[in-house]
Structures are given as structure tokens and as C-alpha cells.
Amino acid sequence: MAFLSFLGRLLFVSVFILSAYQEFNEFGTDGGPAAKTLRPKFNAFTKHITAQTGFQVPHVEMKHLALGFIVMKGLGSLLFVFGSSLGAYILLLHQAIVTPILYDFYNYEADKKEFAQLFIKFSQGLQLLGGLLFFIGMKNSMPRRTAKKKASKAKMN
């Protein structure tokens, strides 16, 4: 059973590991294609947040943001594979930040082709969030192992 659990976690994070590996290899001096793709999406997201809440999002370098996402995916995946809740929390934070930024279906009309494609990707991001929440919930509901103390034997004279 332990091997199946490990294999399941490994397959689950394979999406994150492969993505982080590809983005790391393409990073370059400007953040690579990940930063270039992220820039217009992040700008649209910040404009949307500012318009809806009035909160001004501070300026962020895209290559730093892309590097942060690579680190979060890599570290979170490594910890998660070995059953750490911290890894699940890191991946959960990554997904909670990235999903609404990259898959901005809310910026398109419902009858547009882009809306359907982005909404499907957004839903897949929510599925990953759900899987991580399920793991955290199961991990927290399991009783902790305690070291068994040997019963002391009474000495007989």
C-alpha cells in the first residue's frame, strides 16, 4: 500500500516536475517563454484586480516571478513525493496564484473560442487544487504514530 501511495504522489506531481524542468531549461537571462507568456496575463490580472478592488498591485519583474514559480513547483513536488504536507501547501499556493492569472477566461465573452479553452484549463487547475486539498485533509485526519513504550516489568525479589 505504501508503494502505491508513493507512485500516486509521483504521478500527481509529474505535471509540476516536467513543467518546472522545461521552464528551467528555457529560462535564459529574461525568464524565457514562461515570463513572456506571463507578462500580458499578469498585467491583465492586475488591471482586473485594481478595477474590482481598488488595490494597487506592486510592480513585479516577470523573470523573478517565473523563477519563483519554478522553485515552488520543484521544491513542492520534491517534498510532496515523500509525503510532506509542506510540499502540498507549497503546490497549493502555487496553483492558487497561477490558475486565475494564466487561465483568465473571465476576460473573454462566453461565446468566444478562447473562453472555452481557458475555462477548461482553469477547471483542470481547480482539479489539481482539489487533489492537493484532499491530500492535506487525509494527511491531517490520520492519527499520528506514537512510540510504543514497553511495559515495565515489576522486579521480583
Rank of each mutant, 00 (worst) to 15 (best):
L11D: 04
A88Y: 09
L102R: 11
V15D: 08
T46I: 11
G131H: 03
F119H: 13
I90H: 00
G125P: 01
R39Q: 12
E114S: 09
E23P: 05
T37M: 03
S141I: 05
F55H: 07
T50F: 13
A66E: 02
M156T: 12
F3R: 11
L118H: 09
I120L: 12
A35D: 06
N140C: 08
G68V: 04
V57I: 15
M62Q: 14
G31Y: 07
A34P: 02
K112T: 15
L92A: 04
F69V: 10
L132V: 04
K153P: 00
E109Y: 10
A34V: 02
M142G: 08
F3I: 11
T53M: 05
G28M: 02
M72G: 13
K63F: 08
T37A: 05
P40V: 04
K113C: 00
A96Q: 07
V57Y: 13
Q95C: 06
F24V: 03
A35T: 00
L126V: 14
I49T: 07
F16W: 02
H94G: 02
G130S: 02
S141A: 12
V98F: 14
L133V: 12
A88M: 09
A51Y: 09
Y106C: 01
M62N: 11
P58M: 06
F55K: 06
N107A: 14
L129K: 04
S123T: 15
D111I: 10
S141Y: 08
Y21R: 01
N107W: 10
Q22S: 04
K121L: 11
A66K: 04
A44L: 07
S14K: 03
S14I: 03
G131K: 01
K155L: 13
L86Q: 06
V15E: 08
L78K: 00
S84P: 01
L4N: 10
A51M: 07
E109N: 13
I49E: 00
K153V: 14
